[in-house]
Design a protein around this nucleic acid. Structure first.
Lengths: 244, 244
DNA sequence: CGGCGCCTTGAGGCTGATCAAGGAACGTGG
DNA sequence: CCACGTTCCTTGATCAGCCTCAAGGCGCCG
């Protein structure tokens, strides 16, 4: 087993034992490749697999009766995909590629076995689930109670921080990798209004744009207008049981 | 050990062994009582406990810089409170009582031990976390992409279904137990507009109101206008490892 | 070269916010 | 037992943030 995606992600948070790594690696069955726009999972599909994104970026969303779309989450390498398969028989959201993607498939039952043998891995998954939960509720608060401009800024900061975890050298300038329509669907706005907000932010000298590249000019002010919190900070896994 | 709250909730989903029940019971340390309006946990508090709501109803919310509030979740007997303490050192949301409440305190480390000995319990907590996650993303989609009326209806249906899990005999008539301001803070609306939406729903013969009691007159039409899904349906825990 | 995806910008309209005022129900203290 | 404060609900008038519709531009790919 060259190396396990899941073990890599978990290993960033705690020091795994070789047995734990091996157990995780065993649940990884095969690989999938997708191109931009392709769906990995569709809402209401019956599924019993999970996935890990290895390369590329993805998003998960739901479609409403009137055709509008709410993007729920953006996914980056190392992220678990379709964890709701651990609670539901059918997918609760569609997951689609934002660009070329490489994905590792995890067998649900084999993952269960890994947890059974190494309970600390289960505990870690609980914690990772909470991280996602908190990110989701942050967005709920933004969409429910903040202005269009604040929502767009919060999303930009979020996307930058997600990318920075993969490349710690990343500074204030980054390629968002999403269209203005996607920003709108994530923040509950129309693409037209997202465009206006981006222009305003540029006029206020908070950001600059060139093609898809965005540069954050005044991060502290941006953080203030958007009430954005980087949820990768402040983690505390001190309660985890010892490795088996 | 008379009986464990946590074991009761878990026992609704799977058949627990006596050992599992005992392990859960051991992590329950003490009880707390709160009256309406009192907070159990405040955002940014350092905490290392979890809680289970035994009687009453609660809500969790965040306050924004401008003083506005976003309610993230309503809590009913059996619900786990403050699970984000399993990932963060400081509370990410405030949890407050909607009425008289009785709460059991769970020690984070003891819960970790219970999971270590009975990994299936950890797996079950992963699944429960996903259930909450899906409910949260449902609300995100509602707030981001549906009309004020649809949001209010979705919340009413949600509150009814939550109560019905505790009392399966509950029909179309129920006491919401929340103020119009709280409905607004949960759905991203103002109390004034919530009031108008309720009146409209009444005029359209979709609901009736008398005091705090609401009666759903046409549930299928209500479900249709709101795109509401009862997330307690469709659960599938088939992947759980066997009991240890 | 034509088509398509994405971005941009303007004009006008609607949903839901804000501001304001009053009423009903209830608990509390004089 | 009544006066009063508080909380919550209700309704009207006005306002504004964001949406809708529309049109055009740029860059890329077949």
């Amino acid at each position: 087993m060259p190396d396990s995606c899941l073990a890599k992600r978990f290993g960033e948070l705690i020091a795994l034992t070789p047995h734990e790594v091996a157990a995780l690696a065993r649940s990884e069955t095969r690989e999938v490749r997708l191109r931009r726009g392709a769906s990995l999972v569709r809402e209401n599909d019956r599924i019993s697999d999970l996935f890990i994104l290895k390369h590329g970026a993805m998003m998960s969303y739901v479609l409403l009766a009137d055709g509008s779309r709410q993007i729920l989450r953006f996914l980056f390498p190392g992220d678990l995909i379709g964890v709701s398969a651990l609670a539901y028989a059918a997918a609760t959201e569609t997951v689609a590629a934002l660009g070329e993607c490489e994905i590792t498939v995890l067998d649900r039952a084999l993952l269960g076995e890994a947890i059974a043998v190494h309970p600390r891995l289960g505990a870690l998954m609980i914690a990772l689930g909470q991280l996602d939960q908190v990110v989701a509720t942050d967005r709920l608060a933004a969409v429910g109670r903040t202005s269009a401009k604040a929502r767009v800024v919060a999303l930009l900061l979020h996307l930058r921080d997600r990318q920075r975890r993969l490349d710690p050298a990343l500074g204030a300038s980054f390629v968002a990798g999403v269209t203005q329509e996607e920003i709108g669907d994530a923040t509950g706005l129309t693409a037209v209004h997202v465009n206006r907000m981006l222009r305003q932010l540029e006029e206020e000298a908070l950001i600059t744009r060139e093609g898809g590249r965005i540069t954050l000019l005044d991060e502290s002010r941006l953080a203030r207008v958007s009430a954005y919190v980087n949820r990768f900070m402040g983690l505390d896994l001190g309660w985890l049981p010892p490795a088996r």
